[in-house]
């Protein structure tokens, strides 16, 4: 049975959701789309680094704490009827092939092209994994919430609730 794309899935979240699932599955899904639509590179897919800029919250000045891996790609998909659809991707990843796959998926999903339903299970699984990750992190916070009491100001000296 074909899965449909979760309604909460937005274009801005697709790269993150796709990064949460195995890269090989994303590349395979993009290959399936590429077998149905002609794919041309607008720019050559690249893998390299991005210099990360951060704004300090003390004096509101920007600085560079370091670099992050980044892969990017931009493609045009041409459908059987000759219409063209552009897609692009920038992901914190080492593989230009992976970025190109995400760009192909971006183009197909944005235009709702035939065959794009192959990606829905991946995005839904990625979203579920990210939701689980978020719950795990929040459990770390909840389990360690602390409300220190000042010594000598309460009757209950040994409680921590």
């Amino acid at each position: 049975m074909n899965q449909t794309l979760n309604k909460t899935s937005q274009r801005s979240q697709w790269p993150r959701q796709l990064m949460a699932v195995p890269a090989a599955e994303v590349i395979a899904a993009a290959a399936t789309l590429a077998s149905q639509h002609r794919v041309e590179d607008v720019t050559l897919p690249q893998a390299g680094l991005a210099l990360m800029q951060l704004r300090d919250s003390a004096l509101n000045e920007a600085y560079y704490p370091g670099e992050i891996p980044l892969a990017s790609a931009r493609v045009i998909l041409t459908s059987a009827d000759g219409t063209q659809h552009e897609g692009a991707a920038q992901v914190m990843h080492d593989s230009a092939t992976f970025a190109r796959a995400v760009a192909v998926i971006d183009a197909a999903l944005a235009a709702n092209l035939p065959g794009s339903e192959v990606v829905a299970p991946l995005l839904n699984r990625g979203a579920a994994l990210l939701a689980q990750q978020s719950v795990t992190r929040k459990k770390m916070l909840a389990r360690t919430r602390v409300d220190f009491a000042l010594l000598g100001t309460t009757d209950e000296e040994d409680g921590d609730e």
């Binding site: 680094l49 800029q53 992050i68 891996p69 992190r137 220190f148």
Partner: peptide
């Protein structure tokens, strides 16, 4: 590795925290 780009200034207010403490305020 080639440097592909420079990000705009990222806002640490959007961090997904696993720890936050203050020794200034209870």
């Amino acid at each position: 590795k080639p440097r592909l780009l420079e990000t705009s200034a990222q806002d640490t207010g959007s961090m997904r925290l696993i720890r936050r403490i203050s020794s200034a305020f209870k």
